[in-house]
Amino acid sequence: MTDEHNPHPDLRSRFDAELDGIRRGAVALGSLVLENAERLIEALLESRLDLAQQAIDADDVVDRAYIDVERRVFRIIALQQPVASDLRLLISIIRIAHEIERSGDLVVNCAKGILRQQGFTLSHPLQGLIARLCRATVDLFGRSIECLAEMDHEGAGRLDEEDDEVDDLVGEFYALLATEAQKMHVDTAIELSRVGRYMERIADHAVNVGEHITFVVTGIFPRHAEIDED
C-alpha cells in the first residue's frame, strides 16, 4: 500500500507477506471444509457412502491445516509484537480458524450419520427440504469464506440476515420431519434431526466468522457494541 502516509512501502513487507499468508491459510482451511461439505451434500442426497467415507478421511487434512494456521499465528505474535489492526487480524484468524474447524467436525458428524444409516431413503418433500437446507447452509458458509478472502466486512454484516433464512429452513425441516417421523425408523428420524441441528450450527459458525471479520476491519465487535448500548 503506497500513499502519502506510507512513504516506505518496503517497510515490513516480509511481515505483511506473512500476515497475508496466514490469512490465506485460513481461507484455504475454509475451502477444505467447503469441499468436504459439498461431498457431504452429494453423499446425503445420492446416498453415496464412499463420499461420506472420503469426507471423514479428509478431516485429517483439515485438522493439520488448522494446527498449521494456529502455529503460524502464535509465532508471529511472539516474534513481532503486533498491535492495532495487525493484532486484531491475528486474534481473529485464530477464532475464525476455530469456527471453521468446528464446522469441519460437524460435516464429519453428518457423514458418520450417513454411514450409520447406510444412506437415507427419504420422501420427496423431505428430500427437497433437506437439500435446500444443506444448500443454503453450505452457501452461507461459502460466502463467509469469500468475505474472509476479500476482508469484506459489509458482506460479513449481511451474513446474519442469510442465517435467518437458514433458521427458517431448519424450522420447516423439523416441522416436516415431525409429521413424517412415524413413517420411518426411530433411528433414522433421530439421525435426520441431528443433521438439521448440525446444519444450523454450521450456519452459526459462518455468522461468527463474519463478526470476527467486522472486528478486524472496524475494531468493534458487533455483539459487544450491543451490550454497551444497553
Partner: peptide
C-alpha cells in the same frame, strides 16, 4: 488516525 496506526504497526517512520 491512520497515521497512528501506520506508525505503531511499523509501516511508517
Amino acid at each position: 488516525e491512520k497515521q497512528t496506526e501506520d506508525y505503531i504497526t511499523g509501516r511508517f517512520g
